[in-house]
Each structure stands twice: as structure tokens, then as C-alpha cells.
Write a protein that binds this DNA or RNA. Structure first.
Lengths: 337, 337
DNA sequence: TTGTACGCGTTATCAT
DNA sequence: ATGATAACGCGTACAA
């Protein structure tokens, strides 16, 4: 292995001079020495040992990225949303001169261990974390943490990047209303906890109330997987649920719903209008093209990394909670009544 | 930050004793000391600094995973094949007690730098690398490398994990033949270089020749993107290409082809039978469900990690070139003539 | 402008 | 069974 010492010997200078050249402390080294040393570094293909540097500088240039594994599938990256977001985060971290260490974790403690083990400069959590988890993680980690898609509440001041879920719900519902729909169902899973789904529901309710359709408010409690979507689609096709439009709070779920409805003889959007949520890139391969609420995943990833880097460098952070915009993508699964 | 020294002081022993306890060198420490030290480690939530350990042990427990960025899209993880495979690789690395450092790289030199920087124990390349790149990387890296999906040739002895592409091409073509097709097109991009596509083509040719259809062999030279698929589908629908069946050498491309054909009035599989390649998980959301050649991505990822670990531990490697099996998935896009 | 001494947290070696 | 010492490769602080 090549070390500073080897370069120093070759150049006939001390280790520190080489170190200074590498770290761009040009004021401390003469121009000619810089050039000579740089030439040798290049010729010998020297690259610094970042383990040693981390030890000495108390700064690792490592950013840990965590995704949560669910019971359903050990491979979280099968979820196109997660992998898309991860790709953006990774390439942004890379651009900024940092390194990405990734782990799919079951429990927060795993994340804490990794951060300590590698003295990571910061961490990004891709999947939603509960309030308790965020609290726990913040308490036990020395480095800054950024949570993406974790339901924050106003009191807490974790660093978070979210989307305007309420607006998303509002836009989806309003669009159906504008297309003449009244009997609009909200399909998603609500519980007591704060959640992105709850926010979307608020938007749905607001749009319905503004239109004077309070009595048509119809929450369908269902897990938003593709499979559950199929079941629900069949149910709707059998007229067990009386709606002309559905706001399905996840794209894959919406796609399943459409499949289920089709399988039982319905035509989309002729007999049923559907609006999804996410605008997954795989939607472009599915026909009819899903009308959906889109979020700019690339932007979200970028913003999260930038927020984290500001925290790492202890720069001023204007807002610890960043809410990204959403918009409605008009495609083919909504029909004017 | 908590160090060995802190634990040692607390336990009233030397640093080395604590180190020995942590590393399970039980023969060197008395039973009671072990228990006392372990208790304190737990209570104080100590975790070792792996940067320091790497430095001292010349072993980092880091495995680097590289994906190649293409010009088309900076975010390689939008490709469902890549992200699926990556997820398997990551969770397998995690299971084996190693850490994953990931980088999307433009040039081989980037990968070499990262490996040297972090003294990684090994690396896995997810995207296909040319012979020259593999040679270059092998020459300049000290640690073992595993290449997935890189066209190897018999002479070279890089560690590779591939699939039986020729068999895949054979199976796809044979299936079309068994369904009564004669005019079967092979759609894919062939050049002089060794490539997975060339292997698939060999399989196609073999099946055609075995059936006595040599004169129907029809290679359609085309880049296998979704967009190109659409174009080709339209062309076929306009009867510019005389085929009843198509072996499309990538799923997304096949899906585009189907869309294009549909858009110009064709019904799939009534007017055209299509067989894809990969069996991407997103296929399950697209209807009609694509008949395709599947590979077991989970198996592939696992095999790659296991091969790498054997090399790292200098265990015996029976075969440096692992070829994974493929099989035909009969779904809805092939019709009996 | 350049060099020396020391410390970062850990492990290997050798002594007790 | 336990501990002292040196070494891993690099950066900080200070001396020359």
C-alpha cells in the first residue's frame, strides 16, 4: 500500500509537505514543490487512506443512508419509489464529494450502531419513521439526521423533507370534482397516528366540503398495496361501493384497483375515474396512463442532501422542515361526467 | 466519543483486555472479566470505531458496489433491474456482517480511487463492463472484484456472475416455434463485441436452425429502450416488417413494442406474439402480462456476494465464472398460431 | 517554506 | 490471564 511516506521519500520532502499539497494548503508550500509532489502523486497513483484521515480529522466524509425493511419484502429496492429516491440521493452525495454507506435496517438501533461504527458525518432516512423513532435516533446520534417522508408535527424540530400531502389530496379531489364527480371515495389507511395519509385525507375533506359534497365523503379503509387494490377494484365493479371516482393514495394501489375493476368488466375511465399518488416512473409503461399527483423525487432527494450538508457544516438553516410542492398530472384515468 | 480506554477505565482493566473481549478471544480472558466488561460495554452503549480498526487490521469490512451511469439518465436506480439487483446485493452483504459503500461511477478510475481510499475488502460491479475495463480494474485493484452481467470470454478468469443468455434466447425462440410461429424476428442490438445480446442471438439462431427455419432468421438491429420499442411496434403494425412473433431482448423494450403495436391498431397477442427478457418486477403491473425469459435476480445477487466473500477469505473457488439458469415464463403475450 | 512530535482508536506482539 | 508498547496512515500544532 502506498502512503504519504512513500510519496515523501520519492519527492525528497517530509510527509507534512505532501500532506499539505494534498489538502491544498498552498500558502505553506512553494510553487515548485507543489508541482513536483503533485506529479509524483499522479505518477504513483496515490490516493489517501480515508480511514486514517477520518481518525485524525474526526470527520469521515461518509453519509449513511437508511431504508427500513418491512416484513412484506426484504428487498426494499423493489419499491420503485424508494429506489428512485435513493438514486437521486446517492448521486447528489457523490457530487458533493461525500461517500454513501447504505443499509436496510429493521430497528433504529442498527442505524445508531452504524453511525457510531463509521463516525458518519450525517445520515438520511428514506422511509418514514415514527415520532418515537425520530426522537430516539436524535437523542442517541451525535451527527445530524434528515428524515424524508416522516410525519413531523409542528412541535418537533427534526430536520425533515416532506411533500405537501394535504395539497396533494386537495388537488386530486378537486380535479375529480371539476370533472363532474360527486361520489368520490378516498381509499387509504388511516389510524390515530400522524401520517402522510391523514394529511391527504384532510385535503380530500377540504375539497369535498368546499364543493358542498360533505355528505358524499366516503373513506374506504384499506392497505394500499397492489393486491389490495385488485380486491377493491373488483368490489367496486360489483357495485358494492357506490362511487364514480376514487382517490387512491398510492400509485401501485391505484394500478391494482384499475386491474381489479377491469377484470370484473369495468372500463377505465368510462365507468370509473381513478387518481393515484406518486407518479412512479413505472407508470409510464402502464396503459391507460394513470392520472396522479406527482412529486418531484429528484428535487426531494437533492433538497434532503443539501439540508444535511448545511447541518454538517453548521451553516444557517432557514427552515428545518422543508415541504416540497406537488402537482396534478392529467392523464387518462379520469373522465368528465 | 466513547473509546476502548473509557471502557477499560470503567472496568479497571487494560485496553487490550477490553479489545480481546470484544473480539471474542475468550481463551485470553477469564470468564468473570468477560462478563464484567461486556456488561459495561452494553451499559455505556459502546461500539468500536471501525475506521481505527480498519487501520490496524488492514481489513475494513467494507464492500464497494458500483453501478455505471449512462448518459441517458444520471439516476441508474430508475432502472428496475438495477435497483432490484442492488437491493439483493445490499441485504446479502448486510447479512454477512459487511458494510456496503455504493457509488455510481462514470469511469473505472473512479472505482479504483474509492477502493483505495476506503481500503475496501472487495467490490461488485452491477452493470456490464467491457473486457478492457475489467482488465484495467483487475490490474489496478488489490482487492477481489466480482462482475455481474459482464460479457466474459473463456480465456479470462475474472470473477463473474452471468446468466445463460444463449439458453434464454433458445427458450424464447423455441417457445414461439412450439406455438406455431415461423416468421420470428430477433430484436436487439448487435455489434462486434462480445455481449449478452450476442449470446441470446446465438440461442435464437440455434432454435431456428433446429426447426429448419434458417431462411426465416431475421435480425432487427435496434437499441432496446422503451422508446425504440414503441417505434418498432408501430413499424410492425404497419406491416413494414413481416413477422408473427418477436423475441425482444429486454422487457421494457418489449413493453414499448407492444404499446406501439397497439397504438397502431394491433392486438397482442392476437396479431403479434412477443417474448421479452428479464421478467422485471414491474411486469406484474402491466397488462397483458408479458411472456418473458426470467432470471432469478435474488439468486444472482446472493451468488455474487458469496463468490466475493470466498475470494476475500481466500477460500477455494470451484468456479470463477458462475452461470445462472434462466427459464421461460408463460404469460399472455404469445398466441398459438 | 519545511520538518518534528504527537495523537486519533484500534490491534498485534511480546512480556509478565 | 492481563498489560505495556508499537504500529496502522494521516493531520494538527508548533518548532526550525
Amino acid at each position: 500500500m502506498l502512503t504519504l511516506k512513500d510519496i515523501a521519500k520519492e519527492a525528497g520532502v517530509s510527509v507534512m509537505t505532501v500532506s499539505n499539497v494534498i489538502n491544498g494548503k498552498n500558502s505553506k508550500v512553494s510553487r515548485e514543490t507543489i508541482e513536483r509532489v503533485q506529479k509524483i502523486i499522479k505518477e504513483m497513483h496515490y490516493t489517501p487512506n480515508l480511514n486514517a484521515r477520518s481518525l485524525a480529522k474526526h470527520e469521515s466524509k461518509l453519509i449513511a443512508v437508511f431504508v427500513s425493511t418491512f416484513i412484506s419484502s426484504k428487498n426494499v429496492f423493489k419499491d420503485p419509489y424508494v429506489s428512485d429516491l435513493f438514486g437521486e440521493v446517492e448521486s447528489c452525495i457523490h457530487e458533493k464529494g461525500y461517500y454513501t454507506i447504505i443499509q436496510s435496517v429493521e430497528e433504529p438501533q442498527n442505524a445508531i450502531n452504524l453511525l457510531q461504527n463509521w463516525q458518519a458525518d450525517g445520515a438520511i432516512f428514506l422511509s418514514n419513521q415514527s415520532q418515537e423513532n425520530m426522537k430516539f435516533l436524535s437523542d442517541y446520534c451525535q451527527c445530524p439526521l434528515v428524515f424524508i417522508d416522516s410525519a413531523n408535527n409542528e412541535k418537533c424540530d427534526f430536520l425533515t423533507v416532506e411533500i405537501d400531502d394535504k395539497k396533494g389530496g386537495y388537488l386530486a379531489t378537486k380535479y375529480l370534482i371539476e370533472n363532474g364527480h360527486k361520489k368520490i371515495g378516498f381509499a387509504g389507511f388511516l389510524d390515530e397516528k400522524e401520517s402522510v395519509i391523514k394529511e391527504r385525507y384532510k385535503g380530500y375533506v377540504q375539497a369535498m366540503e368546499e364543493a358542498g359534497y360533505s355528505k358524499f365523503i366516503n373513506h374506504i379503509q384499506v392497505a394500499t398495496s397492489y393486491e389490495e387494490g385488485i380486491k377493491l377494484g373488483k368490489k367496486i365493479a360489483k357495485k358494492k361501493i357506490d362511487v364514480t371516482g376514487i382517490f387512491a393514495t398510492a400509485d401501485l394501489f391505484a394500478l391494482g384497483l384499475i386491474e381489479g375493476a377491469k377484470a370484473n368488466g369495468m372500463n377505465i375511465p368510462k365507468n370509473l375515474s381513478v387518481v393515484g399518488f406518486d407518479n412512479l416512473s413505472l407508470c409510464q409503461y402502464v396503459s391507460p396512463r394513470l392520472t396522479t399527483v406527482s412529486q418531484d423525487i429528484a428535487h426531494k432527494g437533492r433538497v434532503a442532501v443539501e439540508l444535511l450538508l448545511k447541518a454538517i457544516k453548521k451553516e444557517d438553516i432557514s427552515s428545518r422542515r422543508i415541504v416540497c410542492d406537488v402537482k396534478l398530472e392529467e392523464y387518462q384515468t379520469v373522465r368528465e361526467l
